Simulated assay, not measured.
Amino acid sequence: MLAALTGTGLSAAAGLNAYIPFLIVALTARFTDVLALPSQFAWIESDWAIGAAAVLLFSEVVLDKIAIVDHLNDAIGTFIRPATGGLIFAATQAAQDLEEGSSFMQDNPWVGVVAGVVTAGIMHSGKALTRPFVNGTTMGMGAPVVSAAEDGASLGLSLIAIFLPILVIFALVAVFWLLFAMWRRSRRKQKYRDTAMAAAGYYS
């Protein structure tokens, strides 16, 4: 149960930012005894994987905070985020199975991959659908604020998933509520703006 919560939390975090949970898993496995990745996933904690993820994270953090550019970044993320979610779900599940003496996830890694892809895909969809409304109603000024909040949520979810997995469900509810609240607020602003423009004769 806890292994599933860890995988779910990490893959959901990947839906917001693919590289934050990847790096946290890699660094935790590399420098602590909290997570011991099985041999087929040991490359995640290698120097080249950590270095590449760090560079990509820097790019993601910068590009995702620029209005319009963030849409292109989300389009690319449509493939990267679910794939990363599937990878880290399978890796952490297999690691837990290794500790518990079970071999199910090691023998059937596709189960974790599918679960991670679906979870990350759902979170990514929420992010991608919310951002255009935020940018449209703030003329792009809201992009860096919302992006920073998403990065913070991804970081928080990742840490909770590894160190306090029992709280993953509550964290997910909070993140979904945050995304919904931003979407609803942006919709209201857009509706108010459209109403005001119509009253001023712009749509006549």
Results as ranks from 00 to 15, higher is better:
residue 152 G to T: 00
residue 36 A to W: 04
residue 10 L to P: 03
residue 139 M to A: 14
residue 56 L to W: 14
residue 29 A to C: 04
residue 74 D to A: 01
residue 175 V to K: 00
residue 117 V to F: 10
residue 115 A to L: 15
residue 15 G to E: 01
residue 29 A to D: 05
residue 197 M to A: 14
residue 180 F to A: 12
residue 50 I to A: 00
residue 99 E to K: 12
residue 13 A to N: 01
residue 123 M to C: 03
residue 174 A to V: 07
residue 99 E to W: 10
residue 201 G to V: 05
residue 154 S to G: 07
residue 8 T to R: 05
residue 200 A to V: 15
residue 64 D to E: 11
residue 112 G to L: 00
residue 166 I to Y: 06
residue 5 L to W: 04
residue 127 K to L: 07
residue 166 I to M: 07
residue 111 V to Y: 14
residue 181 A to E: 13
residue 103 S to E: 15
residue 9 G to W: 01
residue 194 D to G: 10
residue 194 D to T: 09
residue 111 V to Q: 12
residue 141 M to N: 08
residue 81 R to H: 06
residue 4 A to L: 15
residue 84 T to C: 10
residue 34 V to F: 08
residue 51 G to K: 05
residue 174 A to W: 04
residue 83 A to V: 13
residue 30 R to I: 03
residue 61 V to M: 11
residue 38 P to T: 04
residue 99 E to H: 10
residue 2 L to Q: 12
residue 8 T to L: 15
residue 189 K to T: 05
residue 101 G to A: 14
residue 46 S to D: 07
residue 120 A to P: 08
residue 89 F to E: 04
residue 110 W to K: 06
residue 66 I to P: 04
residue 117 V to H: 03
residue 190 Q to K: 12
residue 67 A to D: 12
residue 15 G to V: 02
residue 161 A to C: 04
residue 131 R to N: 08
residue 55 V to I: 06
residue 164 L to V: 14
residue 198 A to F: 15
residue 74 D to N: 02
residue 23 L to H: 01
residue 8 T to N: 03
residue 101 G to Q: 12
residue 40 Q to P: 15
residue 3 A to E: 13
residue 162 I to L: 15
residue 170 F to Q: 09
residue 98 L to G: 10
residue 75 A to Q: 03
residue 146 V to M: 10
residue 159 L to Y: 08
residue 121 G to F: 04
residue 53 A to M: 05
residue 41 F to Y: 04
residue 149 A to S: 13
residue 134 V to T: 05
residue 162 I to Y: 07
residue 39 S to N: 10
residue 45 E to R: 10
residue 102 S to N: 09
residue 204 S to W: 12
residue 111 V to N: 11
residue 26 A to M: 07
residue 194 D to K: 09
residue 115 A to I: 13
residue 60 E to P: 03
residue 10 L to G: 02
residue 186 S to F: 07
residue 190 Q to T: 14
residue 52 A to D: 02
residue 182 M to N: 09
residue 80 I to T: 08
residue 63 L to W: 03
residue 116 G to T: 04
residue 76 I to K: 04
residue 100 E to T: 13
residue 133 F to R: 09
residue 166 I to D: 09
residue 78 T to M: 13
residue 86 G to I: 04
residue 96 Q to R: 13
residue 46 S to N: 05
residue 63 L to Y: 04
residue 133 F to M: 13
residue 134 V to I: 11
residue 174 A to T: 10
residue 82 P to Y: 01
residue 76 I to R: 01
residue 20 I to P: 00
residue 135 N to T: 14
residue 200 A to P: 14
residue 126 G to D: 02
residue 32 T to Y: 03
residue 139 M to V: 15
residue 191 K to H: 14
residue 82 P to E: 01
residue 107 D to S: 11
residue 126 G to E: 03
residue 76 I to M: 09
residue 107 D to W: 07
residue 103 S to W: 15
residue 121 G to P: 03
